[in-house]
Design a protein around this nucleic acid. Structure first.
Lengths: 109, 109
DNA sequence: TTGACATGACACCAAATGGTGTCTTACAAT
DNA sequence: ATTGTAAGACACCATTTGGTGTCATGTCAA
Protein backbone atom coordinates (compact mmCIF):
# COMPACT_ATOMS: atom_id res chain seq x y z
CA UNK A 1 0.00 0.00 0.00
CA UNK A 2 1.70 3.15 1.36
CA UNK A 3 1.02 6.42 -0.41
CA UNK A 4 1.11 6.54 -4.18
CA UNK A 5 -0.59 9.89 -4.66
CA UNK A 6 2.62 11.77 -3.98
CA UNK A 7 3.29 14.89 -5.97
CA UNK A 8 6.97 14.73 -5.24
CA UNK A 9 9.67 12.13 -5.57
CA UNK A 10 10.68 10.66 -2.21
CA UNK A 11 14.35 10.64 -3.23
CA UNK A 12 14.04 14.34 -3.89
CA UNK A 13 12.38 14.97 -0.53
CA UNK A 14 15.14 13.27 1.49
CA UNK A 15 17.97 14.84 -0.50
CA UNK A 16 18.06 17.87 1.78
CA UNK A 17 19.73 17.49 5.18
CA UNK A 18 17.31 19.91 6.84
CA UNK A 19 14.44 17.69 5.74
CA UNK A 20 16.20 14.60 7.01
CA UNK A 21 16.60 16.34 10.38
CA UNK A 22 12.89 17.16 10.33
CA UNK A 23 12.10 13.50 9.73
CA UNK A 24 14.33 12.57 12.63
CA UNK A 25 12.69 15.07 14.98
CA UNK A 26 9.22 13.90 14.01
CA UNK A 27 10.27 10.29 14.52
CA UNK A 28 11.35 11.13 18.05
CA UNK A 29 8.39 13.19 19.14
CA UNK A 30 5.37 11.83 17.26
CA UNK A 31 3.65 15.15 16.64
CA UNK A 32 5.02 18.68 16.61
CA UNK A 33 3.79 22.14 15.58
CA UNK A 34 5.85 24.42 13.35
CA UNK A 35 6.83 26.83 16.11
CA UNK A 36 8.43 24.03 18.10
CA UNK A 37 10.32 22.69 15.11
CA UNK A 38 11.64 26.05 13.95
CA UNK A 39 14.07 26.86 16.84
CA UNK A 40 15.90 23.58 16.09
CA UNK A 41 17.19 25.14 12.88
CA UNK A 42 19.22 28.18 12.00
CA UNK A 43 16.68 29.59 9.62
CA UNK A 44 13.36 31.37 9.69
CA UNK A 45 9.92 29.90 10.24
CA UNK A 46 8.98 30.34 6.56
CA UNK A 47 11.90 28.23 5.40
CA UNK A 48 11.09 25.38 7.78
CA UNK A 49 7.47 25.57 6.70
CA UNK A 50 8.53 25.20 3.06
CA UNK A 51 10.57 22.12 3.89
CA UNK A 52 7.57 20.62 5.67
CA UNK A 53 5.44 21.32 2.60
CA UNK A 54 7.91 19.40 0.45
CA UNK A 55 7.83 16.49 2.89
CA UNK A 56 4.03 16.65 2.73
CA UNK A 57 4.08 16.55 -1.06
CA UNK A 58 6.16 13.40 -0.86
CA UNK A 59 3.67 11.91 1.60
CA UNK A 60 6.28 11.79 4.36
CA UNK A 61 4.37 13.93 6.83
CA UNK A 62 0.75 14.48 7.72
CA UNK A 63 -0.47 17.73 9.23
CA UNK A 64 -3.56 18.61 11.19
CA UNK A 65 -4.73 21.92 12.58
CA UNK A 66 -5.27 22.11 16.32
CA UNK A 67 -6.37 25.54 17.44
CA UNK A 68 -4.03 28.07 15.95
CA UNK A 69 -1.20 25.65 15.42
CA UNK A 70 -0.56 23.06 12.72
CA UNK A 71 0.85 19.82 14.07
CA UNK A 72 3.08 17.69 11.88
CA UNK A 73 3.40 13.94 12.14
CA UNK A 74 5.75 11.52 10.38
CA UNK A 75 4.48 9.01 7.85
CA UNK A 76 7.56 6.94 7.11
CA UNK A 77 5.94 4.45 4.75
CA UNK A 78 6.99 6.16 1.49
CA UNK A 79 10.55 5.48 2.63
CA UNK A 80 9.97 1.85 1.76
CA UNK A 81 10.56 2.83 -1.86
CA UNK A 82 14.02 4.03 -0.89
CA UNK A 83 14.70 0.89 1.08
CA UNK A 84 13.65 -1.31 -1.83
CA UNK A 85 15.80 0.65 -4.20
CA UNK A 86 18.94 0.64 -2.09
CA UNK A 87 18.36 -2.98 -1.10
CA UNK A 88 18.84 -4.04 -4.69
CA UNK A 89 22.39 -2.65 -4.69
CA UNK A 90 23.30 -4.21 -1.38
CA UNK A 91 24.95 -7.15 -3.09
CA UNK A 92 27.30 -4.76 -4.91
CA UNK A 93 29.15 -3.72 -1.79
CA UNK A 94 29.50 -7.10 -0.15
CA UNK A 95 33.06 -8.10 0.75
CA UNK A 96 33.27 -10.27 -2.37
CA UNK A 97 32.39 -7.31 -4.53
CA UNK A 98 35.01 -5.12 -2.90
CA UNK A 99 37.59 -7.82 -3.62
CA UNK A 100 36.54 -7.87 -7.27
CA UNK A 101 36.89 -4.11 -7.48
CA UNK A 102 40.41 -4.37 -6.10
CA UNK A 103 41.31 -6.92 -8.77
CA UNK A 104 39.97 -4.70 -11.53
CA UNK A 105 41.89 -1.80 -10.06
CA UNK A 106 45.18 -3.73 -10.05
CA UNK A 107 44.63 -5.03 -13.56
CA UNK A 108 44.17 -1.45 -14.83
CA UNK A 109 44.12 -2.38 -18.56
CA UNK B 1 35.43 1.83 5.57
CA UNK B 2 33.75 2.79 2.28
CA UNK B 3 34.54 6.22 0.88
CA UNK B 4 34.53 9.17 3.23
CA UNK B 5 36.38 11.60 1.00
CA UNK B 6 33.26 12.42 -0.93
CA UNK B 7 32.72 16.00 -2.01
CA UNK B 8 29.02 15.51 -2.44
CA UNK B 9 26.23 14.12 -0.31
CA UNK B 10 25.12 10.67 -1.44
CA UNK B 11 21.48 11.55 -0.83
CA UNK B 12 21.92 14.46 -3.17
CA UNK B 13 23.55 12.29 -5.83
CA UNK B 14 20.71 9.76 -5.91
CA UNK B 15 17.95 12.39 -5.85
CA UNK B 16 17.96 12.67 -9.64
CA UNK B 17 16.22 9.93 -11.63
CA UNK B 18 18.72 10.16 -14.49
CA UNK B 19 21.51 9.42 -12.04
CA UNK B 20 19.60 6.49 -10.56
CA UNK B 21 19.22 5.11 -14.09
CA UNK B 22 22.95 5.54 -14.62
CA UNK B 23 23.61 3.58 -11.44
CA UNK B 24 21.29 0.85 -12.68
CA UNK B 25 22.99 0.67 -16.08
CA UNK B 26 26.44 0.47 -14.49
CA UNK B 27 25.23 -2.22 -12.11
CA UNK B 28 24.13 -4.30 -15.09
CA UNK B 29 27.16 -3.90 -17.29
CA UNK B 30 30.12 -3.49 -14.97
CA UNK B 31 32.00 -0.91 -17.04
CA UNK B 32 30.78 1.48 -19.74
CA UNK B 33 32.18 4.47 -21.64
CA UNK B 34 30.25 7.73 -21.94
CA UNK B 35 29.34 7.29 -25.59
CA UNK B 36 27.58 4.01 -24.81
CA UNK B 37 25.67 5.44 -21.88
CA UNK B 38 24.51 8.58 -23.68
CA UNK B 39 22.08 7.02 -26.23
CA UNK B 40 20.12 5.51 -23.30
CA UNK B 41 18.97 9.01 -22.41
CA UNK B 42 17.06 11.76 -24.16
CA UNK B 43 19.72 14.36 -23.60
CA UNK B 44 23.10 15.33 -24.94
CA UNK B 45 26.46 13.83 -24.11
CA UNK B 46 27.47 16.85 -22.03
CA UNK B 47 24.48 16.47 -19.72
CA UNK B 48 25.14 12.77 -19.13
CA UNK B 49 28.79 13.57 -18.48
CA UNK B 50 27.77 16.12 -15.85
CA UNK B 51 25.60 13.57 -14.09
CA UNK B 52 28.49 11.12 -14.06
CA UNK B 53 30.70 13.81 -12.55
CA UNK B 54 28.19 14.28 -9.73
CA UNK B 55 28.11 10.52 -9.13
CA UNK B 56 31.92 10.59 -9.08
CA UNK B 57 31.92 13.40 -6.51
CA UNK B 58 29.70 11.25 -4.30
CA UNK B 59 32.10 8.33 -4.75
CA UNK B 60 29.45 6.27 -6.51
CA UNK B 61 31.41 5.73 -9.71
CA UNK B 62 35.02 5.29 -10.65
CA UNK B 63 36.34 6.21 -14.07
CA UNK B 64 39.44 5.18 -15.96
CA UNK B 65 40.70 6.22 -19.35
CA UNK B 66 41.19 3.50 -21.94
CA UNK B 67 42.42 4.83 -25.23
CA UNK B 68 40.25 7.73 -26.20
CA UNK B 69 37.31 6.65 -24.09
CA UNK B 70 36.60 7.05 -20.39
CA UNK B 71 35.02 3.98 -18.85
CA UNK B 72 32.76 4.32 -15.85
CA UNK B 73 32.29 1.69 -13.18
CA UNK B 74 29.87 1.53 -10.26
CA UNK B 75 31.07 1.75 -6.67
CA UNK B 76 27.92 1.07 -4.68
CA UNK B 77 29.49 1.16 -1.22
CA UNK B 78 28.56 4.78 -0.39
CA UNK B 79 24.95 3.62 -0.69
CA UNK B 80 25.42 1.87 2.63
CA UNK B 81 24.92 5.27 4.25
CA UNK B 82 21.49 5.46 2.64
CA UNK B 83 20.66 1.94 3.71
CA UNK B 84 21.68 2.64 7.29
CA UNK B 85 19.64 5.82 7.34
CA UNK B 86 16.48 4.34 5.90
CA UNK B 87 16.90 1.20 7.98
CA UNK B 88 16.44 3.25 11.13
CA UNK B 89 12.95 4.29 10.03
CA UNK B 90 11.91 0.81 9.01
CA UNK B 91 10.19 0.25 12.33
CA UNK B 92 7.99 3.28 11.69
CA UNK B 93 6.11 1.69 8.82
CA UNK B 94 5.59 -1.75 10.30
CA UNK B 95 1.95 -2.92 10.38
CA UNK B 96 1.69 -1.96 14.06
CA UNK B 97 2.75 1.55 13.24
CA UNK B 98 0.20 1.88 10.46
CA UNK B 99 -2.49 0.77 12.90
CA UNK B 100 -1.39 3.46 15.35
CA UNK B 101 -1.56 6.07 12.64
CA UNK B 102 -5.11 5.02 11.83
CA UNK B 103 -6.11 5.41 15.47
CA UNK B 104 -4.64 8.88 15.66
CA UNK B 105 -6.42 9.74 12.43
CA UNK B 106 -9.80 8.61 13.76
CA UNK B 107 -9.30 10.40 17.06
CA UNK B 108 -8.67 13.64 15.17
CA UNK B 109 -8.70 15.93 18.22
C1' DT C 1 -12.34 43.66 22.91
C1' DT C 2 -7.83 44.15 22.61
C1' DG C 3 -3.43 42.26 21.93
C1' DA C 4 -0.22 38.59 21.20
C1' DC C 5 0.77 34.41 18.83
C1' DA C 6 0.78 30.70 14.84
C1' DT C 7 0.51 30.13 10.42
C1' DG C 8 -0.51 30.73 5.43
C1' DA C 9 0.35 33.20 1.34
C1' DC C 10 3.09 36.17 -1.20
C1' DA C 11 6.79 38.73 -3.43
C1' DC C 12 11.48 38.75 -3.75
C1' DC C 13 16.39 37.26 -4.36
C1' DA C 14 20.94 34.77 -4.96
C1' DA C 15 22.78 30.55 -6.01
C1' DA C 16 22.46 25.91 -7.68
C1' DT C 17 20.62 22.74 -11.11
C1' DG C 18 20.05 20.61 -15.45
C1' DG C 19 20.08 21.34 -19.77
C1' DT C 20 22.27 23.35 -24.37
C1' DG C 21 26.08 24.35 -27.95
C1' DT C 22 30.95 25.12 -29.28
C1' DC C 23 35.88 24.62 -29.16
C1' DT C 24 40.01 21.91 -28.21
C1' DT C 25 42.66 18.03 -27.36
C1' DA C 26 43.75 13.18 -27.57
C1' DC C 27 43.58 9.05 -29.77
C1' DA C 28 42.52 5.56 -33.66
C1' DA C 29 42.23 4.11 -38.13
C1' DT C 30 42.78 4.47 -42.94
C1' DA D 1 49.34 12.54 -42.78
C1' DT D 2 44.69 13.07 -42.59
C1' DT D 3 40.31 12.31 -40.95
C1' DG D 4 36.81 11.02 -37.60
C1' DT D 5 35.55 9.89 -32.95
C1' DA D 6 35.53 10.46 -27.56
C1' DA D 7 35.46 13.36 -24.20
C1' DG D 8 36.94 17.44 -21.35
C1' DA D 9 36.24 22.36 -20.58
C1' DC D 10 33.64 26.32 -21.23
C1' DA D 11 30.16 29.82 -21.85
C1' DC D 12 25.46 30.29 -21.75
C1' DC D 13 20.54 29.99 -20.31
C1' DA D 14 15.96 28.91 -18.07
C1' DT D 15 14.13 26.98 -14.08
C1' DT D 16 14.29 25.39 -9.46
C1' DT D 17 15.85 25.74 -4.86
C1' DG D 18 16.39 27.53 -0.40
C1' DG D 19 16.45 31.26 1.90
C1' DT D 20 14.46 36.13 3.27
C1' DG D 21 10.79 39.70 4.77
C1' DT D 22 6.00 41.35 4.97
C1' DC D 23 1.10 41.19 5.23
C1' DA D 24 -3.41 38.98 6.24
C1' DT D 25 -6.11 35.77 8.83
C1' DG D 26 -7.48 33.01 12.58
C1' DT D 27 -7.22 31.85 17.39
C1' DC D 28 -6.16 32.17 22.31
C1' DA D 29 -5.97 34.82 26.54
C1' DA D 30 -6.26 38.82 29.56
Amino acid sequence: MSDNNQLRDVFDAIADSTRRRLIRLLAETEELPLHELTPQFEMGRTAVSKHLTILKEAGLVYDRKVGRETRYRLNASPLSEVQDWVGFYNKFWSTNMLRLNQLLEEEEE
